[in-house]
């Protein structure tokens, strides 16, 4: 069933629609929050808060709007409020390593089959994950929404409530910073 139909049912108070929407968005939303705050416990708490906010606000949701963008904007606002409260410096600057050697990518079970593939894949993921985690929050956000979530630039602009030109600028800068960090893996970083 389409998202719009589920949202319409949810607005009428249909609990099954809520269950279906959570199932539909669970991975995308959790990944986005995890990229934003980096800590699984915090991402889990924000995940719950986001759906509570959906239950609270869905009756006032404008059905002509894109539900994806609305949902991710709710999540983003909660994540930013959380970061502002807990780690205000993380909104502007790269987050410091908290000493936990296991990265997000490292905690994800591999689906590769040969030991060599597994080792290479884990190494590759670890490199990218570490490089991404070292980026400022606004750049991590641009990368995850574009590459991992596959959102269009216009959709990202709706989620983070900035003009399309700003999204493109952030995306370009985030890629440049990521490439610099990965220079050792992919060769010389050229600009």
């Amino acid at each position: 069933m389409a998202v719009d139909a589920d949202v319409a049912r949810l607005r009428r108070g249909d609990l099954n629609a809520l269950s279906e929407l959570i199932a539909r968005y669970q991975n995308r939303l959790y990944r986005y929050l995890l990229r934003m705050v980096r800590q699984p416990a915090e991402a889990e708490d924000l995940f719950q808060q986001t759906w509570l906010k959906v239950a609270e606000k869905v009756r006032s949701f404008d059905v002509t709007r894109n539900f994806d963008a609305w949902l991710f904007t709710l999540a983003r606002n909660l994540a930013i409020d959380h970061l502002r409260r807990v780690r205000p410096q993380s909104l502007d600057e790269p987050l410091a390593d908290n000493g936990d050697c296991a990265t997000v990518a490292g905690r994800i079970p591999s689906r590769d089959y040969t030991p060599l593939d597994t080792a290479l894949a884990v190494e590759r993921r670890t490199h990218i994950d570490e490089a991404m985690a070292a980026l400022p929050m606004i750049y991590r956000e641009a990368l995850t929404l574009r590459f991992e979530d596959g959102m269009k630039i216009e959709e990202i602009a709706q989620v983070i409530e900035v003009p399309v030109s700003t999204v493109k600028s952030r995306l370009r800068r985030s890629l440049e910073q990521l490439r610099s960090a990965l220079a050792g893996q992919y060769g010389e970083a050229r600009r």
Binding site: N27, Y30, L34, P40, E44, Q48, V54, A55, I108, I128
Partner: peptide
């Protein structure tokens, strides 16, 4: 970047979220 694996929320988290929501 497109191939990065997707972290999965735990089933406990989904159940708790659903119950609270």
């Amino acid at each position: 970047l497109r191939r990065l694996p997707t972290p999965q929320p735990s089933s406990w988290l989904l159940q708790a979220t659903l119950a609270r929501a």
